Amino acid sequence: MSFLGKWLILFGFILILLGLIFVFMDKIPFLGKLPGDIRIERKNFIFYFPLTTSILLSLILTIIINIILRLRK
C-alpha cells in the first residue's frame, strides 16, 4: 500500500503542476509564438500547430528528467 500511496502523491503533484501551467500559460510571452509554429487562418477556420514550441518543451523536459534521474542514482 505504501507504493500506491507514493504514486498517488506523485500523480497529484503532477496534476497541480499542469494546472498551474495552464493558468499562467498566457503570461509566458514567447510560448506558442515562436518561428516555426504553424498557424493557418481562413474565413471560418483556424488551424494552429505549435511545432517549434513542442520541440522546445520536449527538449527542456528531457533535460530536466535526465538530471533528476541522474541525481537519484
Rank of each mutant, 00 (worst) to 15 (best):
L59C: 08
L56C: 07
G12V: 04
I38A: 11
L18I: 13
T52S: 15
G19P: 05
L71R: 14
V23Q: 10
T53F: 05
P50W: 04
L51S: 11
S58D: 06
I38H: 07
T52A: 15
G12Y: 00
L17D: 02
G5I: 00
M1G: 12
L4K: 02
F45W: 09
D37G: 10
F11N: 09
E41A: 14
K27F: 11
I60Y: 03
L18E: 02
I21T: 08
T62Y: 14
I46P: 01
E41T: 15
W7N: 06
G5K: 12
F22H: 05
I68K: 05
F45H: 07
R70F: 02
R39T: 15
L8A: 12
Y48C: 04
R42D: 06
V23D: 05
P29W: 11
L17S: 03
T52G: 04
F30Q: 13
D37T: 12
L69F: 13
T52Y: 05
G12L: 13
F47R: 09
D37Q: 03
M25Y: 13
E41F: 03
R39G: 07
L20I: 09
L4N: 04
R39N: 10
I64Y: 11
R70A: 04
L17T: 08
L51R: 01
F24Y: 09
W7Q: 09
R42T: 12
I68F: 15
T53S: 15
I14Q: 02
L8F: 14
F3Y: 06
I14V: 13
K33P: 05
K6Q: 09
V23E: 09
L18V: 12
S54I: 04
I46D: 05
L4E: 10
G5V: 00
S58I: 05
K33M: 08
F30D: 11
K73S: 12
G5A: 06
L17Y: 04
T52C: 05
N44A: 07
L10M: 08
L34I: 12
M1K: 00
G32E: 02
F24I: 03
S54A: 14
V23K: 14
R39I: 12
I67Q: 07
L8Q: 09
E41K: 15
I38G: 00
I63H: 00
F3W: 05
L18R: 06
S54Q: 03
I9Q: 10
S54G: 13
L17G: 05
G12E: 02
I64S: 07
F22K: 10
S54T: 10
I14S: 06
L8R: 06
F45Y: 11
F47T: 09
F30E: 13
L56A: 15
K27W: 13
I68Q: 05
L4W: 11
R39M: 05
